[in-house]
Amino acid sequence: MNSSHNFVSPQLCATKVMDVVPSVMRWIHTEVRQQKSTCLTIPQLRALAFIQMNPCSSLVALAEYLGVTSASTSTMVNRLVHKEFITREEHPKLRRQVILSLTPAGEEHLQQVRQISCDRLAEKLVDLSPEQLADLIAGLEELSQIFR
């Protein structure tokens, strides 16, 4: 282990995360926007991803995740329903709540966009050594555990 690891504080690590994560996210957003295979906006793709990770989501939960109003989310949901990427059904017990689910077309579209982005990201990482890749994966797994 490198002796410089002994001097890394949580504050220094937090600063580095705050510096790096936005850059990575900007690259991903740019990559996704440039894909000719998608007819969706980044917020629409985020909505699909949220619904995939949270089956039977409510409109309110999706709005909170996206950080927008329920009215804006409702408009987005209408567009995604019209494109047949999601379904919107009334909650069986709560009349004013809707349940959102991905359709097979929505699942397929999201998977396609993710695969293309993943392939392009892999191209950016191709020059890293196996050890560097393993270290990067270990660090990302640690972050994942912290933010679950």
Rank of each mutant, 00 (worst) to 15 (best):
Q52F: 14
M76H: 09
S58D: 10
I28L: 06
R33C: 10
R114E: 04
G139Q: 06
L136S: 08
L110V: 07
D119P: 05
G67E: 03
G67M: 04
Q35C: 02
V20E: 05
Q35P: 01
S144D: 08
Q115M: 13
T103N: 03
L133D: 13
Y65I: 01
R95M: 07
F85E: 13
P104D: 02
F147D: 11
I146A: 05
D119A: 06
V21S: 08
N78G: 03
I51G: 00
L66I: 07
L12V: 09
P104R: 01
M25C: 03
G106C: 10
L125W: 06
Q112R: 14
R26P: 00
H5F: 15
Q97V: 06
E142G: 07
H82V: 12
Q111R: 14
K16G: 00
I116H: 03
S144I: 08
D19C: 11
A47N: 01
P55L: 04
E131L: 00
S23N: 11
V20M: 05
V24H: 01
V60S: 15
C118I: 14
A138V: 15
L80P: 03
D135M: 12
G67P: 01
T30K: 05
G67W: 06
I137M: 05
Q11N: 13
V77P: 00
R148L: 15
Q145N: 05
M18L: 01
A138E: 15
